[in-house]
């Protein structure tokens, strides 16, 4: 198969995968912030670090 096609397919997959991953991550973060009632950025980051 053409090298350009392989590279192109990999880039498309990475771009779409990146968008989907960012969407999933963001959705989880938004729900977690809403459920736990975090307020400031400092508090949210700290609680998220703590969860890890």
């Amino acid at each position: 198969m053409d090298v350009e096609i392989i590279i192109g397919c990999v880039i498309i997959a990475l771009a779409l995968g990146g968008i989907i991953a960012l969407n999933l991550w963001s959705r989880r973060t938004i729900n977690r912030i809403a459920q736990n009632g975090y307020r400031t950025a400092r508090q949210t980051l700290r609680e998220m670090q703590r969860d890890k």
Binding site: L22, I30, I33, R39, T40, A41, R42, T44, L45
Partner: peptide
Amino acid sequence: IRRNMADELTYGFIMP
């Protein structure tokens, strides 16, 4: 805004 007001605003979403 994240740099200067991270302790003032109520955030509903924080980007990674």
